[in-house]
Design a binder for these strands. Structure first.
Lengths: 272, 272
DNA sequence: ATAATAGTGTCTATCAGACATTATCTG
DNA sequence: CAGATAATGTCTGATAGACACTATTAT
């Protein structure tokens, strides 16, 4: 009954004798694009970590690290997130795997990119004095990406150009970033950012990811600002409220939105 | 001007002296889920390859292979597709990266899964006499997956159970497969299949992937059957035609659909 | 002729886009 | 009160779902 291969080995014998060989293997990391809303819900913020060593020493980079043998990429991303920011239990999902040869100048490294969403911006600081971590303002338009932090006097800007990509009989538009500012993101982390924003925009209408970017209770004007910040365009109030109405329930309380002046707002929570 | 790290090295010096160390690294493969429509456009077909050696010797598996150091995962997937099926220039896109420890009994192996779509089923055969390759009928319902090939007398069936997965404040439904038949797919390839179908269903309305599953010219009844096969449910003719109307143009000719009997049909082609 | 397929017309409900109006709160 | 924000009403146009009807072709 036991199948034997050409060498006459059963599966058990084959595995016991298996020699992994000395083929070259890549290192595999996870990189995490962690997003949150800024104080007045007017735009997205992204968490970056300053590199304390070569390569890209002094550049800002996405948090992340190597995957270990006994864990999944998801577990590694959770671990890195906790180690580097103290956060756990937040939204975390795989985006894309980046494999371009030469993307890390040290050696052959692939990166499985994750998108993480946080309800409240938490204080973060680098894990040692050589490195630094902070939230950056993120502004994405049709033709540029700007990542900035006034306090730290950092402003990283890329211009975006559309490029057509043919896949089978269909065509995509891809965004190709070109560095404009003096400062830059480490490695190919702009590309991870672009891919993550693209997927978030595609999915936010049909998923519930927006609720991972507001607090547990929120007002509808706040929630609308989250959608507007992600999509990068204003929405009509009535249409938005019709669209969202079956995903939320009133808590019965009132709440002052985090904007100056004006009438008090009804408080809602996520329905499920 | 040159930044020096704690060890007093510039970036150039650092990279020249860089020792990749002997950390354990995973092998990384691509696996390709290649789909096409069957003869009468009534259901999807998937290409499988019979394994000629351990592990999973004699089981059917997705085509794929190891990524080499000087290529991207996309290039590797293209190469494997060409080597194993002779196909090139078809739709090919990254789906998800599978990393569960133990998914390959030999050693630590991650797999970057790709979805490929073919316009016409081509003849395929294994690259040597020990292995075999063929198209299988694929039937996916809410509670089971069936992969079968009558000629080869193979029938692989998994039942599906929904499992709730909490991610941040939102919840997903994931499908967990349980083997029902005697025969099975190799490795975690059912999970790749499930993930690929899920993404294809999510995207087919908002992308143009369906046009990668019909020939260059087609009839609207044919195109509708492609959508129905992918989505696993019937669509209303009029709604479908309204929805699709701005993506297609008439060629001016007539064509007999690949169904028996009935009136002749107008021939269309993809607009862009 | 019959059955199967191809193609169009129409009604309804829903919903996004676009404005307008009313209500409430702060200063 | 002025100015800002919150909430709702209403009109239009587009579209999915549902069903009916006409047209054409193979057997």
């Amino acid at each position: 009954m036991e199948l034997k291969n050409k060498a006459g080995l059963t599966e058990k014998e084959f595995l016991a004798a298996y020699d992994p060989g000395d083929y070259k293997r890549p290192s595999v990391t996870t990189d995490i694009l962690l997003l949150g809303m800024n104080e007045d819900y007017s735009s997205l913020k992204v968490l970056l970590i300053k590199r304390g060593d070569h390569p890209f020493m002094g550049c800002w980079a996405l948090p992340g690290g190597f995957i270990e043998e006994n864990e999944t990429a998801y577990m590694a991303a959770c671990r890195e997130l906790r180690e580097e920011t103290g956060l756990s239990g937040i939204y975390l999902d795989q985006i894309y795997t980046f494999t371009k040869p030469g993307r890390d100048p040290r050696t052959w490294v692939m990166s499985i990119a994750y998108l993480a969403l946080v309800q409240t911006l938490s204080e973060v600081k680098g894990d040692d004095d050589a490195s630094d971590a902070d939230w950056f303002d993120l502004r994405v338009s049709d033709d540029s990406i700007e990542i900035s932090n006034e306090k730290k006097d950092v402003r990283i800007v890329y211009s975006l150009e559309k490029e057509e990509f043919v896949n089978g009989v269909i065509r995509y538009e891809n965004f190709i970033p070109t560095l404009v500012s003096d400062e830059k993101l480490a490695f190919d982390h702009v590309e991870i950012l672009i891919e993550a924003i693209k997927k978030l925009r595609e999915h936010i209408y049909y998923s519930n990811q927006a609720f991972c970017l507001v607090e547990d209770t929120f007002t509808l004007p706040e929630l609308q600002r989250v959608y507007e910040a992600v999509l990068g365009k204003p929405l009509y109030k009535k249409s938005f409220r019709d669209m969202i109405s079956d995903k939320v329930v009133e808590t019965g309380k009132e709440k002052t939105s985090r904007f100056k002046g004006g009438r008090r707002s009804t408080e809602y929570k996520f329905k499920y």
